[in-house]
Simulated assay, not measured.
Amino acid sequence: MSELKDRLRQDLTASMKARDTQRSSTLRMVLSAITNAEVAGKEARELSDDDIVGVLSTEAKRRREAATAFTDAGRSELADKETAEAAVIADYLPEQLDAATVAELVTAAIQQTGAAGEGPRGIGKVMGVLTPQVRGRADGGAVAAEVRRQLG
């Protein structure tokens, strides 16, 4: 079993003993999403820690988007719930990259791939190099926007 999945299960047990219902329900939901990812496809497989970080990133993004939608609809109590769930999930994600660091990584990737003169056609090359570097540590949409901005 992966270290991260084992940590999630241990933390779920601890939160249940502490009667922390918010954390318990969020961890149950995350473990369920991991299990669903493991059995998706033609045959079941054990997810690696990197795969689990991908699932966690997806779940955190869903919570952020839902919180925004609830806030826009004037449903602050539901937005607060989604924000709290996103905070619990964020505890298990790697440290997030700030905008300056993402910009530096994009610049380095553009130089590495030689895509500076290609304009928007070079986005695929640059993202191919960047994606493994930022997976789980930065929002893919924000990275793609920075690549588009720098390529021009």
Score class of each variant (00 low, 15 high):
Asp6Cys: 08
Gly119Phe: 01
Ala90Tyr: 09
Asp72Cys: 03
Ala37Phe: 01
Thr83Arg: 13
Asp20Ala: 06
Gln112Asn: 09
Thr113Ile: 00
Val129Tyr: 08
Glu59Tyr: 01
Gly136Ile: 09
Thr101Met: 01
Glu82Thr: 00
Leu31Ala: 12
Asp50Ile: 01
Arg23Trp: 06
Ala60Lys: 15
Ala67Phe: 11
Gly41Gln: 13
Glu95Ser: 00
Glu85Gln: 13
Gly122His: 02
Ala79Leu: 04
Thr107Trp: 07
Met127Val: 08
Ile34Gln: 04
Pro132Trp: 03
Arg75Ile: 09
Val134Phe: 02
Ala108Gln: 15
Ser32Phe: 04
Gly74Val: 04
Gly128Val: 13
Ile110Asp: 12
Ala79Cys: 00
Thr35Met: 08
Glu95Asp: 08
Gly74Phe: 11
Glu59Ile: 02
Thr21Lys: 09
Ala99His: 12
Met1His: 07
Arg75Leu: 13
Ala73Met: 00
Thr71Arg: 12
Arg121Gly: 05
Thr58Arg: 14
Ile34Asn: 06
Glu3Asn: 03
Leu27Pro: 12
Lys61Val: 00
Arg64Lys: 07
Ser24Gln: 07
Asp11Lys: 05
Ala138Asp: 03
Val143Pro: 07
Arg7Glu: 09
Thr113His: 08
Arg64Ser: 09
Gln111Trp: 02
Asp50Tyr: 02
Glu65Asn: 02
Arg19Lys: 15
Gly114His: 13
Gln22Met: 15
Glu77Ala: 10
Val55Met: 08
Glu43His: 06
Gly136Gln: 10
Leu151Ile: 01
Asp91Lys: 14
Arg45Asn: 04
Asp6Gly: 07
Ala79Phe: 04
Ala37Asp: 02
Phe70Leu: 07
Ala86Thr: 00
Ser2Val: 01
Asp72Ile: 01
Ile89Phe: 02
Gly119Glu: 03
Arg7Trp: 01
Glu95Lys: 06
Ser57Asp: 14
Leu151Asn: 00
Ala33Ser: 14
Ile52Cys: 07
Gln112Tyr: 05
Ala108Pro: 08
Ala145Cys: 04
Leu4Asp: 05
Ala86Lys: 06
